[in-house]
């Protein structure tokens, strides 16, 4: 039912994703192994960056996979990539985790720069179109990076970032837009 004429890596990747979505929709449990092999590095990297502790990152990833499996019927491929959807599930769970009361004690003051995630090198061969963290963040100025990190890894809204950094909301929006623009240009 799918065309097998893909030649470029992008279309090959897309085809794997379409196949995977189909299998998940069919409640094929074996698909979750493929899911893990395909996405665990990206998901684990982001979760680790948020929760900062390996054992908790592992728990969150497993919890996220359970959630993805159960709420898969609500995933709408028309609205976006599977990657975007699962990444948001993971991010939200990880952010909920760090916002939970027990986690806050002691961990909140740890600066984001000291996280384990930054000390570990990203897998270079993760994807053919993969762009290194260093290369990417070098394109952002420190203010932009700070805002993107608070929004993406801290679960802050733009108003919360404005309050946290004591900046006008307009400035936060402008910087966030500029930063995301830089990021999206890099992948084209």
């Amino acid at each position: 039912m799918l065309p097998v004429s893909a030649t470029t890596p992008e279309s090959a990747a897309l085809e794997t994703e379409v196949l995977l979505v189909q299998r998940l929709r069919d409640r094929d449990e074996g698909a979750m192994t493929i899911f893990y092999d395909k996405y665990s590095a990206a998901l684990y990297g982001v979760i680790l960056r948020i929760v900062k502790k390996e054992e908790i990152a592992e728990d969150v990833l497993q919890e996220a996979m359970v959630k993805i499996w159960h709420s898969f019927p609500s995933y709408d491929a028309e609205k976006g990539r599977l990657f975007t959807w699962v990444m948001n599930v993971c991010r939200n769970l990880a952010i909920d985790k760090i916002r939970s009361r027990q986690y806050r004690v002691g961990s909140r003051t740890q600066p984001i720069e000291e996280s384990a995630a930054l000390r570990q090198a990203a897998e270079p061969s993760f994807r053919p179109e993969h762009i290194g963290l260093q290369e990417m963040t070098n394109q952002l100025n420190p203010e932009q990076r700070q805002i993107v990190d608070l929004l993406y890894f801290g679960g802050f809204t733009q108003s919360e970032v404005a309050e946290e950094l004591n900046l006008p909301l307009g400035t936060v929006k402008t910087r966030a837009r500029a930063a995301i623009k830089v990021l999206s240009k890099l992948i084209r």
């Binding site: 990297g45 680790l48 999206s184």
Partner: peptide, 27 residues
């Protein structure tokens, strides 16, 4: 969306090899 996805992917960290079975089994 693709900009943020790329930013997320740039943070990829390959999990330890023994985690694979634990997570899949737990799931």
């Amino acid at each position: 969306i693709s900009g943020l996805d790329a930013y997320a992917e740039a943070h990829a960290v390959t999990p330890p090899a023994d985690m694979r079975e634990r997570v899949l089994q737990g799931w």
